[in-house]
Amino acid sequence: MSAPTSLTPELLRGMPLPDHQQGADKNSRGRVLIIAGSREVPGAALLTALSALRAGAGKVQIAAPAGAAPHLAMAMPEALVVPLAETEAGGIDPAEAGRLARRCASADAVVLGPGMMDPPALAALTHRLLAEAEGEAAFLLDAGALAALADCREALRRHAGRLMLTPHIGEMCGLLGCPAEEVAADPLAAARRAAATYGAVVDMKGGRSFVASPQGEAWSCDRGNVGLATSGSGDTLAGIVAALAARGAPPLHATLWGVFLHAEAGDRLARRIGPLGYLAREIPDEVPGIMASLAG
Rank of each mutant, 00 (worst) to 15 (best):
residue 122 L to M: 15
residue 138 A to F: 05
residue 135 G to F: 05
residue 123 A to Y: 05
residue 119 P to M: 14
residue 141 L to N: 01
residue 137 A to M: 05
residue 128 R to C: 07
residue 121 A to V: 10
residue 134 E to S: 03
residue 128 R to D: 15
residue 145 A to K: 07
residue 144 G to Y: 05
residue 140 L to K: 00
residue 135 G to H: 04
residue 127 H to W: 07
residue 130 L to T: 05
residue 121 A to C: 07
residue 127 H to N: 13
residue 120 P to K: 05
residue 130 L to N: 03
residue 124 A to S: 14
residue 144 G to I: 09
residue 119 P to N: 09
residue 139 F to T: 05
residue 146 L to Y: 00
residue 135 G to D: 05
residue 142 D to G: 11
residue 149 L to A: 06
residue 129 L to I: 10
residue 127 H to R: 15
residue 124 A to T: 11
residue 136 E to M: 01
residue 139 F to G: 01
residue 123 A to V: 04
residue 148 A to R: 05
residue 144 G to T: 05
residue 134 E to G: 02
residue 145 A to C: 13
residue 149 L to T: 03
residue 143 A to C: 12
residue 143 A to W: 06
residue 132 E to P: 02
residue 142 D to N: 11
residue 150 A to F: 01
residue 122 L to Q: 14
residue 134 E to H: 04
residue 124 A to R: 12
residue 128 R to N: 13
residue 128 R to G: 08
residue 124 A to P: 00
residue 130 L to P: 04
residue 129 L to Y: 08
residue 121 A to E: 04
residue 133 A to W: 01
residue 138 A to V: 15
residue 125 L to W: 03
residue 122 L to G: 06
residue 147 A to T: 12
residue 137 A to I: 05
residue 131 A to E: 14
residue 133 A to Y: 00
residue 137 A to P: 00
residue 134 E to I: 02
residue 141 L to V: 09
residue 127 H to I: 00
residue 134 E to F: 01
residue 132 E to S: 13
residue 139 F to P: 02
residue 120 P to H: 03
residue 147 A to L: 13
residue 136 E to D: 14
residue 130 L to W: 10
residue 147 A to S: 15
residue 146 L to P: 08
residue 124 A to Q: 14
residue 140 L to R: 04
residue 126 T to Q: 08
residue 120 P to G: 10
residue 145 A to S: 15
residue 129 L to C: 06
residue 136 E to A: 12
residue 134 E to R: 04
residue 128 R to H: 13
residue 141 L to R: 00
residue 148 A to Q: 08
residue 139 F to K: 04
residue 142 D to Q: 11
residue 123 A to I: 05
residue 125 L to F: 10
residue 123 A to G: 13
residue 147 A to V: 09
residue 121 A to I: 07
residue 128 R to K: 13
residue 147 A to W: 13
residue 120 P to I: 12
residue 132 E to D: 14
residue 149 L to K: 01
residue 147 A to I: 02
residue 128 R to Y: 00
residue 139 F to L: 09
residue 126 T to D: 08
residue 140 L to M: 07
residue 142 D to E: 14
residue 140 L to S: 01
residue 128 R to T: 07
residue 122 L to A: 14
residue 140 L to D: 05
residue 126 T to E: 04
residue 146 L to N: 02
residue 148 A to E: 06
residue 148 A to C: 13
residue 144 G to W: 07
residue 129 L to A: 04
residue 123 A to N: 10
residue 133 A to S: 15
residue 136 E to C: 03
residue 137 A to Q: 01
residue 135 G to S: 09
residue 143 A to D: 10
residue 123 A to K: 09
residue 121 A to H: 02
residue 142 D to W: 10
residue 133 A to F: 02
residue 129 L to M: 08
residue 148 A to W: 04
residue 129 L to H: 03
residue 137 A to L: 00
residue 142 D to T: 09
residue 137 A to N: 02
residue 127 H to Q: 15
residue 141 L to Q: 01
residue 123 A to L: 10
residue 147 A to C: 13
